[in-house]
Computed example of a mutant assay.
Amino acid sequence: MTFSITGRCVETGMFGVAISTSSINVGSRCPHSRAGVGAVATQNITDPHLARLVLDEMEAGYSAQEAISRITENREFIDYRQLTAVDTAGTTAHFTGTHILGTHTVHQARDCVAAGNLLSSAHVPKAMTAGFNQDPTAHLADRLLSGLEAGIAAGGEAGPVHSAALIVSDKMPFYLVDLRIDWDEDDPVAKLRQHWQAYAPQMQDYLNRAINPTAAPSYGVAGDP
């Protein structure tokens, strides 16, 4: 009931996740990243805490594969979980339990890993990694969205999706990009693309407001000179 792409930009060191699912508010549970550390997606019957644990392990110096192995070993209910991760070396890793729903598969490529469950086809993750790597010069957010859109074009889930999310970490402890469509009856991935297109021209201004408000433009609202 979920498909995602987790990736890294080798040029900038950014990490991120793009994801969509049939249930509400996927962005609150499934995509996770940490500046200078990596990115993780946790899905199927989701335990969001697992992502933080994997990121903690990677921050402690373990590779993505080592981190996932350490977190999944002998963990209760782990057979209901699906995890993906990418680390600072661009190494990717994944875990898929034995109780994952429907058609499920994973595909790893350069600096990215895509995974899904309850898919319309086992070919969806491979299409997503191809979409991600189609333009390596693009902003990571664009590349992640391209991967997600390629997954939709390849058939996506077996049923309709209703929420989607996009996160990107750069150098700050907060997300550079954190966009969500919590519920949409028709096409949350298309709405997510529209949100990114609206946000991208303002992204640096919002970052400047956090780093140095004197360098940021006014908000352009009443009472703000």
Rank of each mutant, 00 (worst) to 15 (best):
P125H: 06
K191W: 07
A141C: 13
E11D: 13
H162A: 04
D224G: 00
A18I: 11
N44M: 01
A60N: 13
I100D: 03
L50C: 06
N44E: 02
C112E: 05
I100V: 13
S69I: 01
T12G: 12
H139T: 09
L119K: 13
D111T: 03
H32C: 13
N133H: 13
C30R: 00
Q82A: 09
D205V: 04
A141H: 10
T84W: 03
G13H: 09
G13C: 08
D111Y: 11
G131H: 05
V54L: 06
N25D: 15
A153L: 13
M14R: 10
F95H: 04
V168S: 04
F3D: 08
M58S: 02
P31Y: 08
E149Q: 12
R143F: 08
A18P: 13
A115F: 06
L83N: 06
Q43T: 02
I5V: 14
G223Y: 10
I211E: 07
P160A: 12
T42S: 03
S146L: 03
R209Q: 11
A115D: 05
V106M: 06
V86R: 12
A130K: 15
H162D: 02
A64L: 10
K126C: 13
D47P: 09
G159K: 11
D170Y: 05
G131A: 07
I5W: 05
R180D: 02
M128F: 01
L83A: 06
T2G: 04
Y199P: 04
G131M: 05
E185K: 10
G116S: 10
G131I: 07
A93Q: 08
A222I: 00
G38D: 06
S23F: 15
L118M: 15
R52I: 03
